[in-house]
Design a protein around this nucleic acid. Structure first.
Lengths: 215, 215, 215, 215
DNA sequence: CCCTAAGCGAGACGGTACGTCAGGTCTTCGG
DNA sequence: CCGAAGACCTGACGTACCGTCTCGCTTAGGG
């Protein structure tokens, strides 16, 4: 049996897998040192010990490269079970804020979003590589709260999805705005205040109902 | 009385005030046509019928120029009195979203915020020219609601300020995130849902109290 | 009788005569410090404590200004009577070489000549302000030699003029070439060798004649 | 035997040899059309169909480029054997004058010499690329005259070298001065008069000697 | 004794060229 | 076919001077 699928069998020298990792690592290092606007493909290539051609063979340009380089950082976000919905939300808010304080994330996130406003393929790449992947946190938090009995199950799937999207935009938006635009720290006090506001908003929508509220 | 203030008395040819307006207008036009990353100082100068040196004499670079060019657009935001706090909030959310749908704002806002993460003076410029100026809307909304009796007066000035900041980050953050990151439309339904969430959150914080809640 | 010729009578504030001197002096200083190619009108104006407009009111540009600034230096050349034609020639050769060693002359002379190859009015200005004025030295030398009996009088005025031009080109050309192109020093030995060559050449033209040769 | 010298073995794309020729040709064309002072690197690059960076990769600046561009023209000078020293000298004088009448040479030669007065490396480049190469004409002329018996052989090598330098400065200087400074034509009459003066000067130095003179 | 016209310092103005830098492509050699 | 190296074209950068143009102010001479 052949080692390679004949359809994908390639003749000639195969691509170095080590190069990919080195390039993404170099990209993050360059973001830290230089920031988005001063990062250059040449610098990344030099840091990675790789030729510029190798970069362009794998990524279309700076935007795509940076998206991939920072996307992995967002996957580090977790939702540790702290026992209550409020604690879980506050925990993820603090984690997210900490991620946005890292220099490579700070400088890259807004930049690629800005670029994506004029580049649909980039926008799709950001959504699939970063944004949509983190909605799992909202969904997971809801499931946990439902399992704990803090939340009822919503029967209307479409309403549930809309609700999750809204919550995601509110949480992510507020933290991003606080961190990058207002440039104020997200400390326990702010995270607590914000979490309270959010959960009361969700709860209040159903105070006239029996039982726990839905999302 | 002297015609010229000795402190501002200037020798030499005075700067053309017409040029300033032409340059800012040209900058917005270039943002619409080319977007942030393709906008060049040379193109702006050409559109404005002005020499590149004239731009650099007045602005340190592309970042500063664009901040000033879009800042004025944010000043167009108003808080029309719609009779209730909920209607006022929803109105301003829709207005803000409409502003962010304009191509010059879309492409510029995130870009300058991204740059500001590595440039303190730019961050200060953004805050003073754009962000802080719009907090007036939050303050004005609160005053109106207080006048209507929808809200109590908060005695603790510092808590009131913190509250206003939080509300501002939540509103602005959610709308920006929905519009630019999630790239979904802000329609009446979304604005309504978001407004409900926000006001219930604020209200819920005090359901055990007599009388209306405070901000 | 009017103090001013009505044709040249000027109303308004007269030009500052002090400015002219200051500008020419500043031009020479700038030539010394910066050299021809780095000299700028702005720098000259600043050194002279004068506005750029004042320069342009009096000279058409850098070329004309520099010609006037260095022309006066050439007028310092003299033909001290050393008792013999050979000594006189050698003396003026050394004097001329010394002038060409001065940094302001070195850098300016070839430059304006180069410019003059594409600018007839500049060429005329150089000729009238510098070149033709120094032909007096050749004519004076001939007269002295004739008075001493070292040379006969040439009856053919046109031949005499041609001869003076040739001698002028040979002397000036050789010294300039030695100094600026070959970049070798003009010392007593070289000046002596050159003078010998020149005078023998002139003398040889008439060795078959009775009496001294003519120019 | 290895195809490439390990010392000169180069990795990467080799420089285009065609570009060099195109650039020098374009430089001469630009000199003809625009003259030294209006020639720009950008114009040369455009004429050569080459990027500005390619020029700067090979030459430090306008001065160096122009020296190389005109140097080759000087190599066209020859010393055709016309049968006598006088005829040879007159021939080369006319040839040299014709070269200096060409617009690219007129405008460039004095300009680079002027620049060289403040730039030692440029001066060395001019000497090695232009000046010293043409001394061959003086040496060749002397050899021919010696072979014909018109001149004796000089035993003192150092005196011979000094003499050749003097003759070179006189010939080159006189022709340059006549052509570019006095801006008068070098016709047969002038060339004849100058040649006579020069050769009589050389001859006269030895009229008291038996046999032909030396240089 | 003012009036008027030009000169003046200052500095902004529209331009042109500079020399550099980054982007993205192409060409060579070697693995 | 991949990869390193580096030359290549393109186009923008931000700066330096150019020569011109307002400004407000000064400085004469002529009425």
């Amino acid at each position: 049996m052949s080692r390679t699928d004949p359809r994908t069998a390639r003749t000639g020298r195969p691509r170095s897998t080590a190069a990919d990792a080195a390039i993404l690592e170099a990209t993050r290092a360059s973001l830290v040192d230089l920031g988005w606007s001063k990062l250059t493909m040449g610098d990344v290539a030099a840091r990675a010990g790789v030729a510029k051609t190798t970069l362009y063979r794998r990524w279309a340009g700076k935007n795509e490269l940076v998206v991939d380089a920072v996307a992995v950082l967002f996957d580090e976000l977790e939702l540790p079970d702290r026992g209550s919905l409020a604690a879980d939300v506050q925990g993820v808010v603090l984690q997210f804020a900490a991620l946005l304080e890292r220099p490579e994330t700070r400088t890259a996130l807004m930049a690629v979003v800005a670029e994506s406003t004029r580049d649909d393929s980039l926008r799709r790449r950001i959504r699939s590589a970063i944004v949509d992947r983190q909605k799992r946190l909202v969904l997971l938090g809801r499931e946990r709260a439902q399992a704990r009995g803090e939340l009822r199950y919503e029967d209307d799937a479409s309403a549930a999805a809309r609700n999750a999207d809204l919550i995601f935009d509110v949480i992510a938006g507020a933290v991003v705005h606080r961190t990058l635009v207002s440039a104020e720290p997200v400390d326990d006090a702010w995270a607590g205040g914000f979490t309270t506001l959010l959960l009361l908003g969700l709860a209040g929508a159903q105070t006239d109902q029996a039982g726990p509220q839905t999302w």
